[in-house]
């Protein structure tokens, strides 16, 4: 009997903390930051080649561009749930403005999707195609970070 009570209490506590972990949005924040890092890592490859710091390699460029296009396919509303701005919690630079004008925020993401797809078409065709495609990606990043990310770096 005593064992059953203990087990029930432990199970209850575990279930409670699991529910907490689900509701505090930390999984969503981690996923957001993870996808941004995947973007940055692959931009580093393409930007390095565009600048001539890395030798152009069509296959490596295509792999990087495919990765960007892959991130562009992630369904964003799953990650940007309400209550996860930097006014709600620590450890994020997401501004409340994201949820105040969510339609505009999603338009900014769509611009990244377009730019990533353009890069996917361009990356394998030669070094000279990288510069303009990087420009398009940079514009998409800037447009969103200007309004929706707390700038402190």
């Amino acid at each position: 009997m005593k064992n059953i009570v203990t087990a029930t209490v432990i199970a209850g506590v575990l279930a409670g903390s699991a529910a907490l972990a689900q509701n505090d949005g930390s999984a969503q924040v981690k996923a957001r930051q993870g996808q941004m890092r995947v973007i940055a890592l692959n931009l580093g490859v393409l930007g390095g080649m565009a600048q001539g710091k890395i030798d152009y390699d069509a296959e490596a460029a295509q792999n990087a561009a495919d990765s960007l296009a892959g991130v562009a396919m992630i369904h964003q509303p799953t990650l940007w749930i309400e209550g996860t701005s930097n006014a709600d919690r620590e450890g994020t630079k997401a501004l409340p403005a994201i949820w105040e004008d969510n339609a505009d925020f999603m338009t900014k993401w769509d611009a990244f999707v377009t730019a990533a797809n353009d890069m996917q078409s361009a990356a394998g065709t030669g070094k000279d195609a990288l510069g303009p495609a990087m420009g398009g990606l940079g514009d998409a990043c800037k447009a969103c970070h200007e309004k929706y990310q707390q700038s402190d770096d």
């Binding site: 941004m36 973007i39 940055a40 990087m134 940079g138 990043c141 800037k142 970070h145 707390q150 700038s151």
Partner: peptide, 24 residues
């Protein structure tokens, strides 16, 4: 120099906030 032209930091993070207007 590259950051002031493209808005990309050495880690390929992007410029944000009011600095976007400066980089433009």
């Amino acid at each position: 120099t590259y950051y002031l032209e493209t808005g990309f930091t050495p880690d390929f993070d992007s410029v944000g906030g009011h600095m976007v207007a400066v980089v433009e």
